[in-house]
Amino acid sequence: MEQPYTIYEQQMKAKLKRWEIRLQKQPNLIERASKSVQNRINQVIPEKIHNTITATVKGIVQTTLFGIHYMPATEPLKGVSMADRDAKAEELLSLYKKIAAAEGAGAGAGGILLGLADFPILIGIKLKFLFELAHIYGYSTKDYRERLFILYVFQLAFSSSKKKPALLHTIKNWPAISQNFPPAADYANQVNWLQLQQEYRDTIDFRKMLQLIPGIGAVVGAWANFGLLEELGVAGMNCYRLRNLQDKAAKGDSPAPVSPKSQN
């Protein structure tokens, strides 16, 4: 017997549609101008520095995604309504925003050296949040494909408008796409780590650079990190809501969702 979507799930479907439309909008004039400036800055930065930052990001992300350090101790939640999952996710996000804000304030107050050290620490905080979020929505991070999904969510939250539609396409087609992934070690070699770190850095650059200014660093550091966790929380919760609804449809509980847009 078919079990239709609950009223709450129907509300979330409508909310997700609006979110998808916003993600797939073409970048506005200000965003295009900002990206153009960032691209010119990237061109004048010595390749050695790019390589160092890329290696740092790659090392942090690979250690997180292909190790066991960040795996939650608790098992993924099963048999829980989406409303209850969302409530737990909001509590988790509130906690991690406070953690990130406190870390950002401390780094901002410490000047340039601590401000630079904040870069890898913040990535770790974000990835830890996503690992715990996956378990709230019922997905086990023991499966390396779920850890790769986390990487796509991370990129969706911190990539340019131009890259978001293709990332959203992958996320919406995850069950089919993930079945074709090579072993974890092989997949790690296929990630464009330079592009990932540049997109991430460009997204947070302005806020994080202000953090290095003496006198206002602590306030800006807290504000920047709080806002970045909020953006990640929205992206993460919506991605897992999409998957929960798709999983329900795949079980025959309701009509299958509309096919996602093709990649650009």
Score class of each variant (00 low, 15 high):
146 E>G: 09
177 I>Q: 14
100 A>R: 02
44 V>Y: 14
176 A>Q: 12
263 Q>W: 08
122 L>Y: 02
88 K>E: 09
111 G>P: 12
137 Y>D: 07
104 G>E: 03
254 S>W: 13
255 P>K: 02
227 G>F: 05
250 A>H: 12
6 T>K: 03
14 A>S: 09
91 E>W: 08
147 R>P: 02
130 L>K: 00
46 P>M: 04
21 I>A: 15
9 E>R: 02
189 N>M: 04
126 K>F: 13
93 L>I: 04
47 E>K: 14
38 Q>V: 03
222 A>M: 03
149 F>K: 00
230 E>F: 04
216 I>N: 06
260 P>K: 00
245 L>H: 01
36 S>F: 10
22 R>G: 04
37 V>D: 04
57 V>M: 05
53 I>F: 08
160 S>V: 06
233 G>T: 08
233 G>A: 02
42 N>G: 09
11 Q>S: 02
224 A>G: 03
189 N>D: 15
28 N>W: 13
121 I>P: 10
52 T>S: 14
244 N>L: 02
187 Y>G: 01
80 V>P: 00
92 L>N: 04
214 P>D: 06
107 A>F: 01
78 K>Y: 04
48 K>F: 13
61 V>S: 08
71 M>K: 10
117 A>G: 09
259 S>V: 12
161 S>K: 13
74 T>N: 11
43 Q>M: 11
228 L>W: 14
55 A>C: 02
42 N>E: 14
166 A>D: 07
131 F>Y: 13
39 N>P: 05
199 E>P: 01
123 I>D: 11
63 T>Q: 12
232 L>C: 05
197 Q>E: 15
187 Y>K: 03
27 P>C: 13
217 G>A: 07
189 N>R: 13
3 Q>H: 13
60 I>A: 05
259 S>R: 08
135 H>A: 10
39 N>E: 09
38 Q>N: 11
18 R>L: 13
49 I>M: 12
119 F>G: 01
200 Y>G: 08
189 N>S: 08
139 Y>I: 01
202 D>T: 11
104 G>T: 07
107 A>T: 02
145 R>P: 10
138 G>Y: 10
205 D>Y: 11
198 Q>K: 12
34 S>Q: 10
111 G>K: 13
39 N>F: 14
252 G>E: 06
178 S>A: 15
58 K>I: 14
221 G>V: 03
37 V>L: 13
128 K>Y: 02
96 Y>Q: 12
136 I>R: 05
163 K>H: 04
264 N>P: 15
236 G>S: 04
196 L>P: 07
65 L>G: 04
8 Y>I: 06
141 T>F: 06
6 T>W: 03
145 R>Y: 01
4 P>N: 05
158 F>Q: 03
22 R>Q: 10
182 P>W: 09
58 K>C: 12
6 T>C: 00
236 G>M: 00
50 H>M: 09
36 S>W: 15
50 H>W: 10
2 E>Q: 12
195 Q>I: 14
215 G>N: 09
173 N>G: 07
204 I>Q: 05
122 L>S: 13
85 R>L: 06
2 E>A: 15
115 G>T: 11
191 V>A: 09
253 D>C: 11
27 P>F: 08
95 L>K: 15
105 A>M: 07
183 P>S: 06
38 Q>I: 07
104 G>A: 06
127 L>Q: 03
195 Q>E: 09
